[in-house]
Structure formats: structure tokens, C-alpha cells
Amino acid sequence: MVANAGAVEQVVGAPRGGGVLRRTLGPIRDARGLPKVLLWVGGLLFLVFVIFAIFAPLVAPYGFDQTESGNKQFPKYGHPSGSHWFGTNVTNHDVLSIVIYGARTALEVVVLAVLFSIIIGVVLGLISGYYGGWLDRILVLIMDALFAFPYLLLAIVVAFLLAGKVGGGVMTAALSITVVYVPQYFRVVRNSVLSAKQESYVEAARALGARPRTIMGRYLFGNVIQSVPVIATLNAADALLTLAGLGFLGYGIQPGDAAEWGYELSRAVTDAGAGIWWTGLFPGLAIVLLVVGLTLVGEGLNDILNPVLRRRFGRLVVMPARPRSQEVAGDLGAGQ
């Protein structure tokens, strides 16, 4: 009861963190049917990879850069076997270990990239939408241009430029992916700010003499942030593919630093010519499964949170039957 009272208070008062979270997550609890199934399957898939990523040293049989065990060199292109479930690759590494450590790299990069894009995109969107004017116009132009540009090329160019200065680590990969996704958050946030700043509670805040920072942080932020979770999960899936693409083209993470699925696949293309399938199949499957997991979560969230697509599973209202005599009389009346 106490908790309920709190919720009511928050809805009545200015939107605050807890209230926003509750309002955003509320529909998820009430979801049923296909969206719920999608959400659960996707969430489970995602969870498996998170476990791999966090406990990689415990789960993986060997290190990602290990080429021997107990003074015994691993075979080159060893078939999948008892000691190497997924076989070994051209540089005598264990493919299973690479796949597991790859999850760690992928999640690190993607989490960083999505966080960066949310922070930059939301802040720029808030400022641009609230202040308007020439700043808004310039930002919109730049963001539209970035948005229209082929995402992978953008990431490659940034990675290419950063690699010369920063070096090819997790940070470089994350930053190059960030550039691709900032415009999406910017757009969404800017557009909701534009409509939200006309609301009377914002006007009231302004009349009370609140500073722009307070208005943006306290009043607008909570109201424009709600579509971000959906975009973030879908973007995470997309960012993963971009990372793999970068790795495939040789602009991802330096091979010695970490295991990366896209890079493994680029080497596997040559292996495929020789009929060696295990070096490509397993890292590739890992990408597919993780992306599917994230996409399912995103789609599920979208189905549940997006009011346009949402379906209410309300209880059917059964009207009490009318007395038969009246019905007949009515029909007769209409006939005459």
C-alpha cells in the first residue's frame, strides 16, 4: 500500500527517476503472448553470452592467445575433437576459446559504444531541441548527413583515422561505432523535446524561474528518455554487426589484444577454399545468436512499449443478453 501511495505521488508530481523506470517497465510485466515469448527467448540468449563474457577465463578451456598446453603444441587446423571441441585454426589457437573470449570483446565494445552514443545523442538532442536557433539547425544538418551515410563506411573511416592516433584497441572500435549511432538518439530526443517543451509543466517551471539546466535535467529528460531502451537494444544488435564488419575488414581490434569474431571470419574465408569449415562456422554462429538474442529483446520491447503496435489483452466485456421479447419487438419496429 505504501509503495502504491508513493507511485501515485510521483505521477502527480514532477516525473522522477523511479517513476520513469516504473512507467517504462510497467507494460513489460503486463505483456502476454508472442511479445513476451520473444522477450524471454532473446533475454535468455543474451544472458548466456553475458555469462560467457564475464566468466570467460572459467568457461573457456584455454586462453584466447594460447597455442600450447602442457608443453604440447596445438595442431594447426585441427579437426573438432575431444580436446578441441570446435577445432583449431591457422595460428594453432583453440576456436572454442576464441568464441568464448570473443563474447567478452563484443560486449565490451558494444556496451561502451551504446553508452557513448546515448550520452552524446541525448545531451545534444536536449540542447538542440530546447534552445533551437542556429545551433539546432547546424546540429540537425550534421546529424542528418551522418545518418544518411553508409554506416559501415563511416565507422571504417573513423577507425582508420583513429587507428593512426589512438591505436586499434577496444576504445577505437567503440568510438568508431559511436559515431554511427549518435544521430538516432539525437533525432528521437530532439523531436520529443520539441513537443514536450510546449507542455504546461515546462512552462510552469520556466515561470517559476528554473534554469534551463534544471528544466532539461529534471523535467524534459524523464519525458524524452522513454523510447531510448528500445533503440538501445536494437542498436546494440546493429553495433555488434558493425563491429564484426570492422573486424572482418581489418579495422577492428588488433588480433593480439583480444579475440574478435569478425577477424576470425576474415581468416576463415581463406580456409573455406580448402574445405575447412570449423574456423568460420562457430564464430559466425556466435554472432548470429547474440544478434538474434538482442533483436528479439528489442522487438519484444518495441511490441510492448510502442503504443502504436501494442495490443491490449483486456478482458472481453460480455453484454447481458436482452430479453427476447424486446428484441423481437425492436426488429418488428424496424421492419415497419
Binding site: G262, G284, I287
Partner: peptide, 16 residues
């Protein structure tokens, strides 16, 4: 699934 499979992975499978 078609969206989630990177083109180079699909291409690799087709080649195989």
C-alpha cells in the same frame, strides 16, 4: 535471422 547473419558469414556458408 537474415538480418542477424553478417553477410560475410552467409557468404562463407554458401561458399562451403
Amino acid at each position: 535471422v537474415t538480418y542477424a547473419a553478417p553477410v560475410f558469414f552467409l557468404g562463407l556458408l554458401f561458399q562451403l
